[in-house]
């Protein structure tokens, strides 16, 4: 009976470094940031004088931050459904026993393998609207296709702003939803579809009544992952647009970065970070609890 005890100790020892590291670098650091957000630390010199919620009050009064919150809500609200819908449609198309399925799938998914900075640089120039001297990028393409009326200022137009970033982000991430849905479609038992067809359901009916309900869990988890990516949006905006005219492409992560590491206002930066954490938690925690319950039951 000595062996199991020793093994138990060894198992804990194997886990210990990671547990400590996670405890410190995730939970400890979040606590530290939370505390820093309640202090007066507004220069390179740390100043841990407690000031209560003053940094948060200030933050909500700053127009730039109000715009950022609106932007990130707009972005997330467009990005998730666009990725899901595009991903679902592509998956359904690929599910029709097409030739070259592997090639198509690879093409739809490859943007995920490259850095958001690369995406940002490419789309920065593609969506450069051009000047009086002539249209650039996508605008030039639209001109060439006789669709000149669709030309616009993209990310340089404050009315479009963050929505132009959705195009680039959707390009990068919709393949993810496609891959998820395709895996889901493949796991729908053929007999179920056949049964529905025998019951007189058309192809659309099969999707509506059989396939879609089975894909609901996939939609949920894909939406959560995409939502988390959306709320943390940073590198793409930095490399593609910066804060934009009138902060029309600004996001909390960029404001946090500039506040903290450019203006050295650490307490304010920590406050933005904590609010970002709250936003993500509102999205993810219910999902994790849900998943965790399933795990235990399983």
């Amino acid at each position: 009976m000595r062996r199991p005890t020793r093994d138990r100790l060894v198992s804990l020892a194997l886990l210990a470094p990671s547990v400590i590291v996670i405890a410190v670098f995730v939970y400890g650091f979040i606590a530290f940031s939370g505390y820093a957000s309640l202090t007066r630390w507004d220069s390179l010199m740390p100043d841990f004088t407690f000031v209560g919620l003053r940094n948060y009050e200030r933050l909500f009064a700053i127009p730039r931050f109000q715009i950022d919150l609106g932007n990130i809500v707009t972005f997330t609200g467009l990005f998730i459904p666009i990725c899901l819908i595009v991903g679902f449609l592509l998956a359904v198309l690929l599910d029709q026993r097409v030739r070259g399925e592997n090639l198509f799938r690879s093409i739809f998914l490859f943007p995920m393998a490259i850095s958001a900075v690369v995406t940002g640089v490419a789309w920065r120039w593609m969506l450069d609207p051009g000047t009086a001297g002539g249209a650039h990028g996508v605008n030039a393409l639209l001109d060439g296709a006789g669709l000149g009326f669709l030309k616009n200022g993209w990310y340089t137009d404050p009315a479009i702003g963050i929505k132009a970033v959705v195009i680039a982000a959707g390009w990068q991430m919709s393949g993810y939803a496609m891959a998820m849905y395709l895996a889901g479609l493949r796991s729908v038992p053929q007999e179920l579809r056949e049964a529905a067809r025998i019951d007189g359901a058309g192809e659309l009916g099969v999707y509506r009544h059989v396939v879609l309900p089975l894909l609901r869990p996939i939609t949920l988890s894909a939406a959560i992952i995409l939502g988390q990516i959306a709320l943390n949006l940073f590198a793409l905006v930095v490399s593609m647009t910066g804060p934009g005219p009138g902060f029309s492409t600004d996001v909390p992560a960029l404001f946090m970065f500039e506040t903290t590491f450019r203006a050295s206002n650490f307490a304010q930066g920590a406050a933005i970070a904590m609010l970002m954490l709250v936003l993500v938690a509102l999205l993810v925690v219910p999902y994790l609890i849900h998943t965790f319950r399933h795990e235990v039951r399983a």
């Binding site: 127009p63 404050p158 005219p245 009138g246 902060f247 203006a263 050295s264 206002n265």
Partner: peptide
């Protein structure tokens, strides 16, 4: 100081657009 400059720049940038 940098905190002030940042706030000033943000206000003017917003003003130009709004």
């Amino acid at each position: 100081n940098p905190k002030w400059i940042t706030a000033y720049k943000d206000v003017v940038a917003l003003f130009v657009s709004k």
